[in-house]
Structures are given as structure tokens and as C-alpha cells.
Design a protein around this nucleic acid. Structure first.
Ligand SMILES: [Mn+2]
Ligand SMILES: [Mn+2]
Ligand SMILES: [Zn+2]
Ligand SMILES: [Zn+2]
Lengths: 147, 147
DNA sequence: GAGCTACTGAGACATCGTGTCAATACGTGC
DNA sequence: GCACGTATTGACACGATGTCTCAGTAGCTC
């Protein structure tokens, strides 16, 4: 739980939009769903809120930086409450966990690399897929049964 | 045109699949469509080939490394004949051009970074969006009209 | 509290892709 | 060359994900 409901609602107001009952419901459901969820899961968790409103709200929250998209390995989408800044995701293929990360070295390297060829980066997308630390540890043990 | 039609067909045979008329038609259409195309464009360019076959063939060619996917900024998909190895894309938001690139430094940095947190990278996705070299040059001129 | 407008829900619609299945065409062995 | 077994195909239904329209409602401002 990164931000309180109040803080999330304040973001909506500050960005010039209205606080409505459906939006409150959705923000609450998002926090209860944990750190990543699909649009359908959110719709199911917020009964009484129309499907179109679920998608509209997800889009609004993305625009104001409150929600970010996680593209999974199979190109399906998950959503996630985000602190707002530029970052990337490390998705665990074992347990499904998603972690944010950011690293200045990567950003610098990408821009340096691009400028070598004359390309100007406006945005970029970077997602890692693999095993999170706990799953890596757990499976390393399983792979060495004789020690 | 990276590979000849013959070379592309040989890949299909080597991977244990059959050369069929629809597959030949699709490979030919892909080359004529240039360096990137959507599934629908390919279907339109290969009349007589069923839509399902277009998607099935795209999937097969991806599996054998002959075709790769380009995820655009808006998350829509394009396809592209590829030489096969691991690489990333630089997509121009001005002219739509797509260039492949690969860089060992990035790969090393990503794995180093991941191992700091215990994450084990299995795969990753990296796409750059911005202005290609020609478009950068062209627009740099336009932005300095007084010089 | 009235009024203006953003917002909502319902449901049709669009896009992209997959599953089913009978018919067909490849490649092989002869 | 021909028969055979199977991979592949096209048609079409279906599923998943999201958008559009539009009349009704509810926030916010005064
Ligand atoms: Mn970055
Ligand atoms: Mn890479
Ligand atoms: Zn895990
Ligand atoms: Zn360009």
C-alpha cells in the first residue's frame, strides 16, 4: 500500500477531475487486489461499476501517473498502482510477482547508444521476465538435491 | 530484403515443417510489404489465404526465429522478417520506420543489475520510441529556422 | 438549491486472435 | 508416378479486450 486512499483521491482532484462514487470504489478495490491485477479482476472486484467505467478509470489513472501497465511475457496486460515516476518491471514467471525498478545507468546507456546512430529516444519500454529473488533461491535449492 | 525466399523456405523445412502454397504466398507477401507490417496488412496482401492461416504462420515463423514482433508505443503489434538473433527495436514516431539493434553492454548491465536484487532474468523486452536519424536531422533543421 | 457539465452504465460494436472440424495437399516410401 | 498418413488449410464460431454512443445521473460551483 504505497499511498492512502485520500492521497489517491487528491491526485484525481489536482489533475482537474471529479471524485465520484465509482472512482472511489475502484481505487479501494485496487488496493485490496494487491500489487497487480487485470482489468477483468478489477471489474469483478468492483461490482456495480460498469465495465466501461473500469477501463475509463484505468486510462485516467494512467494519464495522471497513478496506475501503470505491466506487459507480461505473453503480451497480456496487468495494471498496478504506481508512485508515478519512470520505471520498469521485473516479472516473476514462477510466482507472478511484479517489482518496479529504475536505474540511471540504463537510461544513460540507452541514450548514449541511440545517439551513436542518430536516433532520438522519446520514450522506451523495458520489462524483465524471470525469477524473483525468493523463487530463485527456492529453485536453486531444488536443483541441487544431493548438495 | 535480408534473406531470399529460398532461404526462408529452407528454414521452414529444417525446422521440420512443410512448404505449402499458403506459406509460400505469405513469405512472398511479407517481403513485398517491406520491413514491417500488421497481421491484417499481411492478410490483405495474401488474398486466398485464410485469416487463421495468416496468424498460424506468423506464430510458426516466430517460433523458428524468422519473424519477430514489434510492439508499438500504443501497444499495437507489427511483424517483421528477422535474421533470428536476440535484438530490440527502435521505432520512429515520425515516419514509422523500425530498426533492429543489439548491444552487449545493455545485456550485461541488465543482468548485473538484476543479480544485485537476486532476480534471474530469463527473457526481456526493450523497445525504443523516438525519431530515427533522418527524421531527427530533418526536424532539427525545422526547429532552427533562423539558424 | 440550481445549473452546468463531467461522468456513468448499458449495450452495441470493433479488433485481434484462437478453437473446431471436415476437406485437402505435402512429403515419403515404394 | 501413386498411394498413404498426417500436417495443414479455410470457414466460421467463439473468446478476450477494449471502445463508442447516448440518455440519465451526480459532482462541483455559485
Ligand atoms: Mn527506463
Ligand atoms: Mn536485450
Ligand atoms: Zn517469484
Ligand atoms: Zn523517421
Amino acid at each position: 500500500m504505497l499511498l492512502s486512499l485520500d492521497a489517491l483521491e487528491r491526485r484525481i482532484v489536482v489533475s482537474g477531475h471529479r471524485i465520484t462514487a465509482p472512482r472511489r470504489t475502484l481505487l479501494d478495490s485496487m488496493q485490496q487486489l494487491g500489487d497487480h491485477f487485470t482489468a477483468e479482476q478489477l471489474a469483478a472486484a468492483a461490482p456495480g461499476v460498469g465495465r466501461a467505467t473500469v477501463f475509463r478509470t484505468l486510462r485516467l489513472l494512467q494519464e495522471i501517473g497513478t496506475v501503470c501497465q505491466v506487459i507480461l511475457d505473453d503480451r497480456t496486460l496487468e495494471y498496478r498502482l504506481a508512485s508515478g515516476g519512470h520505471h520498469h518491471h521485473a516479472v516473476c514467471s514462477e510466482c507472478g510477482s511484479v517489482d518496479d525498478f529504475e536505474n540511471a545507468d540504463i537510461e544513460v546507456l540507452l541514450h548514449a547508444l541511440a545517439s551513436l546512430t542518430g536516433f532520438t529516444i522519446e520514450t522506451h519500454r523495458l520489462e524483465l521476465y524471470g525469477r524473483c529473488a525468493p523463487c530463485t533461491a527456492r529453485l536453486a535449492g531444488a536443483e541441487l538435491p544431493i548438495g
